[in-house]
Design a protein around this nucleic acid. Structure first.
Lengths: 178, 178
DNA sequence: GTTGCCATGTAAACTGTTACATGATTTC
DNA sequence: GAAATCATGTAACAGTTTACATGGCAAC
């Protein structure tokens, strides 16, 4: 039992951050606190246990320090593999509908770890699923908007427009990468 | 101690749903599962404890049934007050930056519970905070984009475009309501 | 008559939040 | 030398997920 290692989204966010350069726990907290990156908690009670989890799973490890500087953590080989696996896993319908942010995070971390073909596959898949979803939303709206209260209708429109914006981004990003 | 009743976002989502018509636990689950509404868990282990919470706080109560039909829950007077309080609370910077969905949900639930002036105040506040945030993002982008990896840059652009879309929605919605 | 959905719940494990605690280093 | 920030952690608690369990009712 307990064969599967199931890192949380936060775990992957940390792995993605340390894929380039090692960071201290505090450094990670600062990134989550100060940059626009992610809605991840930057509280010590979240970050330090998460780092411990990654160490336990052998996805991250302490950097051997020469001097007595602060302890920093780097990604392991196993961690890189697991991160890459997460990055290139097929996109699910549910993710497009409710977890756009997570997909964007995955894209952001693909820079060096994923080859160009896989990036394009990812973006095309994202694009196609978005098209279908937008269609569904619009069909629903055509059929139901007369029965919907004004505010529900307006909020629904926001959903449609948001997804259209993401679709445009997909198109543009594909053309940038090609 | 334990004076404060702090409903979770899920609690408010349920309260908003039952502000009109009573629903059963299963009915609530179906809404979360089938409609585009919210990213809220529809698992029984989440919904039923949440309903119990609401009952404990006296924000929702069982509907007295004549026949032996399934138990449904309705919002109480206290629940309506608490919901309204949540709806009209001032928007914080952090919410605009990281919790757009929650703000949209609040707007969707305002239909009958909040008067027109308060709706407009809400939308103007949302709009103003968005303008500032977009400015900040663009300033950051101008200064830093040359140091940013391609994927980070592209993901960042998505963030800017998303917020612009929401800003447009605000403008349009204000004009619809006025 | 059995398959599938309606309907409600519980238990264990885990994650995340909040608050507390501590000490070093930097800045004014 | 006081205040702020760097830096790491722990403990209690609350909420969510996952899996399990159960029974009624409808359809075919």
């Amino acid at each position: 039992m307990k064969k599967d290692i199931k890192p949380t989204l936060l775990d992957f966010a940390i792995l993605g951050l340390i894929q380039d350069q090692p960071l201290s726990g505090y450094g990670i907290r600062k990134v989550f606190e100060e940059t626009a990156m992610g809605n991840y908690s930057n509280s010590p009670g979240t970050i330090y246990p998460a780092i411990k989890r990654l160490e336990k799973f052998e996805l991250a490890e302490k950097v051997l320090q020469k001097d007595t500087a602060k302890t920093r953590f780097q990604i392991t080989q196993k961690g890189l593999l697991r991160l890459k696996e997460w990055l290139i896993q097929p996109i699910e319908k549910k993710e497009v509908e409710k977890k756009t942010d997570e997909l964007l995070l995955r894209f952001a971390f693909m820079e060096t770890l994923v080859n160009k073909e896989q990036k394009i596959i990812f973006l095309h898949s994202f694009q196609d699923l978005l098209k279908t979803y937008i269609q569904d939303l619009q069909t629903f709206y055509s059929n139901e908007s007369n029965n919907m209260p004004l505010h529900a209708r307006l909020a629904f429109q926001h959903g449609i427009e948001s997804n259209k914006t993401t679709l445009k981004w997909c198109k543009n990003t594909i053309s940038v990468l090609t």
